[in-house]
Design a binder for these strands. Structure first.
Lengths: 243, 243
DNA sequence: GGGAACTGTCTCTACCGTACACAGAGGAAA
DNA sequence: TTTCCTCTGTGTACGGTAGAGACAGTTCCC
């Protein structure tokens, strides 16, 4: 079972030849391959070759590729950081930004986190860290979870489209061509998409997408908190009045 | 090139035997397979078999699998709806909800929209529809684009984790087991994740995640708009004073 | 009717994940 | 020290994938 893999201690019996590899070494090699050539390039063969072994030897350490990817992900995301003390909003901003940085450092991580899958220790720790920021605020458990889900989702979305941005990191010029091709499409079919053409054509202020979305989401949370506090105050006043 | 596939009219020469298939039929078959067995089950072989042909015959219609998936996506997402007239916020709410519904109807669509890829006509039309809602508001082009990106990202995120939710749609009981296993992990390692354990353990109010996030995001946009309007009013007042 | 163009199929290559059997290594027990 | 037993890494094999290229048959244009 994939999920046991992270949490269950694997006892090492002392009999027989000593393993030449470690899970960490395998995960590192796989992460290196993914970082440089993309997640699609990560195959048992490729990773084993990177280590100088045959692909079947990896199965002595891992039940299958699913577990390898899960391991890569845990290693790429890493443990959550210590956030600087302060207001909940500043802390969540820091948390989101740092999470985005991890995703940007390993763009394949977005691809690796689609679909139903068990969460690893580091992933849960990131959640825990974010939830701690909301501690003490008048939000229900679901609202706390949903809040950090929205924030994490925003970061993931941005990391995903970061590769397609006309930024500095242009791997092999392929993206550039895609952007150029989409531009050509808009030029020739622009009449069907007037608002889109106008919005894209408008100059300035690109690459602010993450900060913009983050600010809107946190503004929204702030509105909710203010509403709750107003409500509390009214209730308190009513209580005082009825007393 | 994948991108030409949607926009470039393919001229049909009248010579030779008439094609037995159509792109629509192929896309429909592929969508059916994906809907019932997941995106992983969509292979050239499988789709061709569904139509009673060999896989190589599909390559007479499609350059490759990339184009097939792009075609499936366009078909699954479909054309954007006519939104009911009204305030921008209500319209964007409707837009987001309808987009989520499309994703929920074809959960594999989330998986199919990861990574760098060209957008199809329907996808651009959805963007256009959302941007039209923001028309006339004091937002820059980038802000408009970022706004709908956040909304779309939120819907996608929710559609993704909808499959993992302990809801009604429990395909083959596997999800149930994963949720159960994660619960077991939290029970045995809960001390490492106190806030998480508390938030999950808190009763009530599940399955509101989409509405919650949507409300927060739109609240945030509303705050920005109010700020802009206040600013405008101040500027106007200052102009009047200086005049 | 003949040539040209297009159809669907067949064969082939190069991968992928992984099940299984097996020779050798090396500590534990005799 | 010798035997045994377990664990290691590897070789082979199987069914799957995407796709290239050659091929025979069909159908229209000249």
């Amino acid at each position: 079972m994939t999920i046991d893999f992270f949490w269950h201690e694997r006892p090492r019996s002392t009999r027989g030849p000593k393993p030449a590899l470690t899970l960490d070494a395998i995960a590192d090699a796989a992460v290196t391959v993914a970082d440089t050539e993309g997640l699609a390039a990560v195959s048992m063969q490729r990773v084993a070759a990177e280590l100088g072994f045959t692909k079947m030897s990896l199965y002595r350490y891992l039940p299958g590729k699913t577990e390898l990817v899960a391991l890569m992900l845990e290693r790429a995301i890493g443990a959550p950081p210590e956030l600087t003390p302060g207001e909940w909003r500043a802390r969540l901003e820091e948390w989101s930004t740092l999470l985005l940085a991890r995703y940007l450092a390993h763009p394949w991580a977005v691809e690796a986190t689609v679909g139903r899958r068990p969460l690893g220790p580091h992933e849960l720790s990131w959640m825990e860290t974010a939830l701690a920021c909301l501690s003490g605020l008048p939000l229900t458990g679901s609202e706390r979870l949903d809040t950090i889900a929205v924030l994490a989702g925003h970061g993931r979305m941005l990391a995903q489209q970061a590769g397609a941005m006309p930024g500095e990191a242009a791997p092999d010029g392929a993206e550039d061509e895609m952007v150029r091709a989409m531009g050509a499409v808009l030029r020739s079919h622009g009449d069907r998409f007037p608002h889109l053409t106008a919005a894209i054509g408008e100059p300035g202020g690109a690459n602010q997408a993450f900060d913009y979305g983050l600010a809107r989401i946190l503004d929204g949370v702030e509105v909710l908190l203010r509403d709750r506090q107003d409500q509390d105050r009214q209730v308190t006043r009513a209580d005082a009045q009825s007393a």
